[in-house]
Write a protein that binds this DNA or RNA. Structure first.
Lengths: 210, 210, 210, 210
DNA sequence: TATGAATGAGTGTTCATTCAT
DNA sequence: GATGAATGAACACTCATTCAT
């Protein structure tokens, strides 16, 4: 009977943690860590307050799980930054690959929460920095430096070039999380990314020195 | 009277509200609204808990005062965006004017807090958007559109161009508030601004159509 | 059937209640009623939490069972206090009979728990008093009074004499439960009982009136 | 006006801790540590729940204060056990000195609580043992040993003699705390002490060896 | 029977807010 | 005005009890 394949009314125990994390993410993004009520998280996950404590020992642990779970899907993306490839096609490609999840997943909310709680949970901010942000920035920086060495792009601080490149994406997701919910005009992150990459490529191109 | 001679003891009652606001800003930036304790704010302002309530009716009101007080100094800057002026000199100028306070004042902290509490205080996020962010963006957008009309810069969505222009500054400020306190390498916002403006100007320039 | 041959696996269902009571006794003695967790009792009894509820309706009921079960083995001892017998041999005998279980069984723990929870479970304290303590004391008191009537022991309040007689045993048991677990020197209850009975007999003896 | 001597409605801050400790003692004796509700303690002390936390950080800390406060008044009594004095007058004296507070103060309740919570607060049980019980027992033991050396009392384990001596007092206070509240006949501790001391003195006296 | 996931009432603790001084 | 002791509503967390399997 259990093999019949029809999903049972009661969900499997194994699903609960993820359901709770998903619910918690929403609540944390809305309220921040402190103002988030455990009861809200539980309710949104469709379980009782007590059930949450079957899977997480404290509210903090839920928060950590939420933030850490924001890592995994993004780690791979970073490793795709190959150095030997000419930048223009690489970036035009990457733009699509990156702006897609930024526009559609919850990652923006996590970024917002990490920023907001960075002083209350410094280890999490540090983990995000060390595991995601710094490596990603370093990868882009060295890809840019390599392109400079090949003469493809003009001189200048490659780290600052990298920041110039990715900042609008970050601002885009924060805009979406911060101002759109209070009535601001939406931002087409993908269009923004596309136009910005062209701007950036033109901006870092070698001047046509005759 | 306050200007007449050196007052024996500073901290005249008229200064209290501002001292409280300044203290509150620090605490709110560190902890967020919910986790900020009134007692900490009072202590940092050098007054008793009860004294805070002589000037502000609730913790929320202090928060509003903190965020609203972040407006004033920036409103003027925005109005300086003249439309008739060629963009390059204007922006090179503006870069200095803007990145200076971003790098040295508390404005970064306020931005962080506004982002973090945008869902708990939507009116504040809306006020920031409507009063500061949207007008500034609109001003830049129309300045850019005007420049496009004059043929100074190439076609493209002028709002997105504007976002491309200012995003690195915003990211720089958030970086300073979020990752530097947990050990990340500092960012020279002014250098970043300078290099980025050149990148942007080059990136939006008309292609050298012969 | 249970007596036929060696049962393959012990722990037949009929044993469960006693196993639970035994486990509960340990936990109650360690923690007291309130701080005792049903889960601990279940775990120590080697059953699931739910299984406990197949045999007992509430935690209180388990507690009652534990305390009441402390009665049975002791009720008989009390009835052995014959009145017509000369006290010295009777007591020297009793000493061994009584100090044996005091030193080796869990009765000390039960006494401790009954004392500790007497206000939370007054009926239990009352039951202990009415069923065990008062009858025992009364039996001893009248045996002593009878001996006084026979001129074997000197005048004095026979109830107080009875208390003088048994107190060290009680204190010995409580000492074992209270101070030995925190590092105090152990007490040899049997030796104490032996020496104390002689002291008592000498103390209540008729002064050598020539 | 404050000097007028009329006690103000609002009690002095300095009195609160003691009032809370007194209230807590009652509740702890009635319920035990776990079952005692902070709200009950607060109510019985005539303050709000929050006020308790102005003086004690946790419920445990209140408990410790209650138990430790049970030390002080008793420490001095112990030191009065002089060794060179003949035992009979010393003990007849001591009996009054000791049974007085046992009969009238809250010490019995504290003893009961220390016994009941000895496993949950082993440091407290240990502190009681090391600071009060063991020294008192040691003092009596050596006073008895000295008397034995002087030939005043007969041979035998002096520690056991000491236990024989004090046990009825202990049992008396426990009786008062445990069984009297559930309807048992009261015990006149002072009369018990008096008769018991005589019993003990006669019991340990040198047999009239011709 | 037996399990253990789930529930939700209960309680320790915090902290914005009040108010007697 | 200024203080900080006092209040009590709010919330994280626990655990006896239930019940689907």
């Amino acid at each position: 009977m259990p093999s019949a394949g029809a999903p049972k009314f009661r969900r499997r125990k194994a699903d609960r943690p993820d359901e709770i994390i998903a619910a918690a993410l929403e609540v944390f993004v809305e309220k921040g860590f402190s103002a988030a009520r455990l009861e809200d998280i539980a309710a949104r996950a469709g379980v009782s307050k007590g059930a949450v404590y079957l899977y997480f020992a404290t509210k903090e642990e839920i928060f950590r799980a939420v933030v850490e779970q924001g890592f995994a899907p993004n780690l791979q993306t970073i490793r795709n930054l190959a150095e030997g490839v000419p930048l223009p096609p690489l970036l035009r490609d990457l733009t699509v690959t990156i702006s897609q999840p930024l526009a559609t997943t919850k990652i923006g909310g996590i970024i917002k929460v990490v920023i907001g709680e960075s002083r209350n949970f410094p280890e999490l901010a540090r983990a995000w920095h060390d595991t995601l942000v710094a490596p990603a920035l370093a990868a882009m920086t060295s890809a840019i430096a390599a392109a400079q060495a090949r003469g493809e792009i003009r001189p200048g601080d490659p780290r600052q070039f990298a920041i110039s490149l990715i900042s609008p994406l970050l601002v885009g997701v924060l805009w979406k999380e911060t101002f759109v919910p209070v009535g601001a005009a939406a931002l087409d992150i993908r269009a923004l990314a596309k136009q910005h990459v062209e701007l950036w490529l033109a901006g870092v191109a070698q001047p046509e020195t005759a």
